[in-house]
Design a binder for these strands. Structure first.
Lengths: 112, 112
DNA sequence: TGCAGATATGTCAAATCTGACATATACTGT
DNA sequence: ACAGTATATGTCAGATTTGACATATCTGCA
């Protein structure tokens, strides 16, 4: 129930309409955890992609998707599923262990 | 590309139709990793539910779902998303760290 | 055996997610 | 300023996932 204001600030509220609550300030801890996991996976994807010197378009080709969806994945758009994020990371060679690390950690500086 | 026969045996092939490959023996390593992650999460869910002494129907009520979907989650039905598994586990009180552990490990005896 | 509770499986309409496309915005080099 | 490249955002038809329901199978237990 209680959500720290620090956490609130992090959400860009792009399309998030969780459960019955329309006000994104009223997110429960579980909802926040879920969203932060998505954001963390998005950051990992971006880091991995950049480490390989790929553009979003190039990655999109690689995983049979589109540049716009890759962008949405990396920016944490509410319309992307964790399934898609995980499939994409696996396609980029991430191991389950690495995925676990992304999921576990809250922030972790995005490796440049 | 190469899939060990040990891994193959584990799949009950209930509805899995991955990518273009219709033969479930032709799964790539990434596809296998993805499926095993789902199975691992399903095992975690079952273990957590049982630890709390809940029936599938009771858990279903708790997460606004149905007994049949809970069963599908726990048995690794192809129709369930990782998103749903994760949301359910979070609802049962799992932490991100615990989720990470499930995702990381391949098998791990289902805690009775 | 028969009953009761729990779990599994199949189906389907409604809800959600997806790739594709258009277009906007940023960033660089010239 | 312009052109080129990369990334972001909005929309939408088609695909996938969901809760719900029916029904089957399991698991004790009297």
């Amino acid at each position: 129930m209680t959500v720290t204001s620090t956490k609130r600030k992090k959400l860009k509220a792009k399309g998030w309409k969780f459960g019955d609550v329309q006000d994104f300030l009223e997110l429960s801890d579980e909802e926040m955890a879920f969203i932060e996991m998505k954001l963390a996976l998005g950051r990992s994807l971006k880091a991995r992609r950049q480490r390989k010197g790929l553009s979003q378009a190039a990655l999109a080709r690689l995983i049979n998707s589109s540049q716009s969806r890759v962008a949405k994945m990396e920016t944490g758009d509410a319309s992307v599923s964790i399934d898609l994020l995980i499939k994409s990371l696996l396609a980029l060679g991430a191991s389950r262990k690495e995925l676990a690390k992304s999921i576990e950690q809250s922030k972790r500086r995005a490796a440049a």
